[in-house]
Amino acid sequence: MMSPILAILKKDLTALFTNSMFYLLTGICCCLWGLFFSFELYAFVQKSYQLSTQVQQGGLNIHQHLVSSYIVIVHYILVFIIAALSIRFFAEEKKLNTFPVLLTSPITSWQIVFAKWLVGASLIFFLLFISAIFPLSLLTFMSLPIKLFLYSYFGVFVVLCVYMSAGLLASSLTESLIVCVVLSLMFNICLLLMGVGRELTDSLIFQELFGFLAIDQHFATFRKGIFSFSSIVYLLSLSGLFGLMTERVVEYHRWR
């Protein structure tokens, strides 16, 4: 049961980690995160200094005023990076004609899709780990609310899994690498804008419905360091829905 999934996971991760393009993208991410983290840190230090001169009680909350805003930047950059890397899931397999190896092996479409999902999740985990180095470096000279930090990072991981699953679907729909990236970006932008529906209706019920469906609402909860079980269930269900659609598309290849 697990052997084919692990084999695909190992093969895809090996291929990814030996690909120079992946290191180039990771390098670009690191530069951007480093740059934005420096800006955020500078702004945080400025605000803290102003507060200390105004003889106010208590300092600035580091999670709220530094880590949380940094996570938003990490999230937005990764939405684009995931769209670019989604070509590796299926589009490249189809383009390089390696897809028949998977489709003619004694494995189910579910196992193929789940293995690819795990590849994407591992990739997100790796990139988030790299991004966490910047805020964690602060630990050398000050304390961080680690619990809030971990909850926020876990939340952004789950949110990014939804975007990655949308990329999985986009990748299964085409063998053109460019079309795959464009489709993946379109799906991700639609997911980002789901909350706009809230503003377009006067009905309280629909406002609440759109509020719950909007990923940004759940993301905002996680950013505050709040562990929301219902948000996790909703986001994993959404990711599962994309997985289900991907499985149907993979199966459709046989029936076309």
Binding site: P4, A7, N97, P106
Partner: peptide, 23 residues
């Protein structure tokens, strides 16, 4: 007709991968 090969893998690694997906 076109051999489905993962060109970035070594021959032994490719065969090991096929062993994996064929359980």
């Amino acid at each position: 007709e076109t051999p489905p090969l993962y060109e970035e893998l070594k021959v032994v690694d490719f065969f090991d991968f096929v062993c994996g997906i064929k359980s």
